[in-house]
């Protein structure tokens, strides 16, 4: 489903990702964890070509792209496979809730307006936002905005969903319901990659956890093994820090 081959990315002299190789199968829910600056978000954003790697090859579902040589068509093809839920929601500020979800259907998928709005409405119902269809994002709470963000990402029928710290900008009272929503989508068999610091959630939803540090894949394991039996010193040190914070 997803394959990263020899991916390298640096900002000036700062190496963010160092020769990353990774394969993810259909239906997997993969969580990227690691200290800040480890390259988690960059790795996620590469899959949507919001970051361009310095070198390497990326395959997502039916699309493959090589950083050494690619066309605009390759980029659109790659982006067409996945969609992203952002930490700060990034809803289109000048569009209503309904338009936020329907726009890509009308503009990108060339769906008829009526059909697009129907589909958008159904998705917004699914995420519990039916009563705010005509509101602008500025009038919604963080949790509500993120639900719309999830509906917008679902609208394009992605083969992979990417979540970039979807709850870290939220007030604590909204976190639970967004995580619940993500869990529901995962239960329907969606392939997902998440960056998250919600360790309890990660443990319950992820089928696989990847620990990144200094732009390298340090450990790649299932949640139970990683949290309970990890022998890796760096992983242990990171997890220990987290437990300390939770206490």
């Amino acid at each position: 489903m997803i394959q990263l081959e020899n991916i390298t990315k640096s900002y000036k002299k700062n190496h963010v990702l160092n020769n990353i190789n990774l394969t993810i199968s259909k239906g997997e829910v993969v969580t990227l964890i690691g200290p800040s600056g480890a390259g988690k978000t960059t790795l996620l954003r590469l899959l949507n070509w919001l970051e361009v790697p310095d070198s390497g090859k990326i395959t997502v579902a039916d699309a493959a792209i090589d950083a050494a040589k690619y066309t605009k068509h390759d980029v659109r093809n790659l982006r067409g496979q996945s969609s992203m839920v952002f930490q700060h929601y990034n809803l289109f500020k000048n569009r209503t809730v309904l338009e936020n979800v329907a726009d890509s259907l009308i503009v990108v998928s060339k769906m008829k307006k009526k059909d697009a709005f129907e589909k958008a409405e159904a998705l917004l119902k699914k995420v519990g936002m039916s009563d705010k269809l005509l509101d602008y994002p500025a009038n919604l709470s963080g949790g509500q905005q993120q639900r719309v963000g999830i509906a917008r990402a679902l609208a394009v029928d992605p083969k992979v969903m990417l979540f970039d710290e979807p709850t870290s900008a939220l007030d604590p009272e909204w976190v639970g319901e967004i995580l619940h929503l993500i869990k529901e989508i995962a239960a329907q068999g969606m392939t997902m990659i998440l960056v998250s610091h919600e360790m309890r959630f990660v443990r319950s939803v992820a089928t696989r956890i990847i620990f990144l540090e200094h732009g390298e894949l340090v450990e790649d394991s299932n949640p139970k093994d990683l949290f309970e039996k990890s022998k890796n010193v760096r992983t242990q040190a990171f997890l220990q820090k987290l437990t300390y914070e939770e206490e």
Binding site: S83, K93, V108
Partner: peptide, 30 residues
Amino acid sequence: VDSGQLEACYSVNMTRFQALRKVIIPQTIG
């Protein structure tokens, strides 16, 4: 205009032109 707006357009596979027309220019005018 916040760069996240353009990223969000790209994330649902809009082209730059579509993003400008639907999202970026209307916000620019404001």
